[in-house]
């Protein structure tokens, strides 16, 4: 009884409230998500108004496909200021689909041989970052270029879909 009450209060919220998506759930349409991303984008440009030339970090080398974001500063340095496009994988320990998506995404990124970087953010360790970028469900993947959010998706995708998502980011 209590269970139903609590859950109902959550499920009746808009789609962006849905959290850990079951593996079979289709990606949430970007229209329902864009509102929360809007503010994130403005925030990002505000955070780095006069961007100096970014340095290439050793972590984006071919050997290490992804890196774990340590804190806000690290995020600014290695993600926002990165000269490469960056995929940010917002994930959580408790999220089953994240464990499937993470390795798939790494594979897709590895195929690009250093043309795209991948950052991983544990939303429970870096709650403020996740909230700032409007992450209301995991997995959420945000694509960033020059500090701007250029694309995103929520939920799980198969290898082909990921390949085309990544190619599109690089092509931009």
């Amino acid at each position: 009884m209590a269970h139903r009450l609590l859950v109902r209060r959550i499920w009746t919220l808009p789609a962006k409230e849905i959290r850990c998506l079951p593996a079979s759930t289709a990606t949430i349409s970007s229209s329902s998500f864009s509102t929360s991303l809007q503010s994130a984008t403005t925030r990002v440009s505000f955070l780095s108004p006069s961007r100096t030339l970014p340095r290439v970090l050793p972590h984006t080398s071919r050997r290490e496909v992804s890196f774990n974001v340590q804190d806000h500063e690290d995020f600014t340095e290695r993600v926002i200021k990165n000269e490469l496009p960056v995929l940010i994988d917002f994930h959580a320990q408790w999220c089953g689909p994240c464990k499937i998506l993470g390795p798939r995404l790494e594979k897709a990124v590895a195929k690009q041989k250093g043309r795209v970087a991948m950052a991983k953010v544990d939303i429970d360790d870096h709650t403020d970052l996740a909230i700032e970028y409007g992450v209301s469900a995991v997995p959420t993947v945000i694509a960033m270029r020059g500090g701007d959010v250029v694309d995103h998706f929520v939920g799980i995708k198969d290898d082909d879909e990921l390949d085309s998502f990544v190619s599109k980011i690089i092509g931009q």
């Binding site: 609590l6 959290r19 429970d124 709650t127 909230i131 209301s136």
Partner: peptide, 18 residues
Amino acid sequence: VNNYIGSLNWGYRVALKD
């Protein structure tokens, strides 16, 4: 069970923010 609870914890966090 605890994974489900983790998702609820996050849901509350987001709801408070919203």
